[in-house]
């Protein structure tokens, strides 16, 4: 599609959607949101870009192969589950680390749950993009 309006609009939209997807990912910690929705949003961002500028440009903008992104995400999610072994808990038990925690302040919460969510984010992003790109290129 060669619409200047779409291309100009897409550039702006894609940036916004990617930022918003990261926001959703982090927000999912304690509120509605999370890796799945974040991944979907990011995927839609790239799909918009692909519709506006073609899949070749979209693939280049993504830098990595979508299927590799999905594979890495699956690896991260699995790693988050297996990490529970270090603390002697069962598979997929959430482990928390509060950086700089004091009596009153929880500090920076870091957890294997977040790592799992990031994994889900990448799996969703990679899987959806590989489906959409290959369909787009096949037709």
């Amino acid at each position: 599609m060669n619409s200047i309006i779409l291309i100009a609009g897409a550039r702006l939209l894609v940036v916004l959607m990617l930022v918003f997807s990261l926001f959703m990912l982090i927000r999912g910690h304690n509120e509605p949101g999370g890796g799945f929705i974040g991944g979907l949003l990011a995927a839609i961002g790239f799909v918009v870009y692909a519709i506006a500028c073609g899949t070749r440009d979209a693939r280049r903008a993504l830098r990595f192969r979508p299927s590799s992104i999905a594979g890495t995400g699956l690896g991260l999610a699995l790693l988050a589950g297996v990490m529970a072994a270090i603390w002697g808990d069962t598979l997929f038990t959430g482990q928390w680390l509060f950086l700089g925690a004091t009596e009153t302040d929880k500090g920076w919460p870091l957890s294997t749950v977040l790592l799992f969510d990031i994994g889900v984010y990448l799996v969703v992003l990679g899987a959806i993009l590989s489906i959409v790109f290959s369909l787009e290129e096949a037709v």
């Binding site: 594979g71 890495t72 699956l74 297996v82 598979l91």
Partner: peptide, 22 residues
Amino acid sequence: MSWLLSLPLIIPFATAIAAFLV
């Protein structure tokens, strides 16, 4: 004990990911 149960699952998954990346 529960690790013994999950290992037959984790190993093929980890292998799948490693094989996929290469």
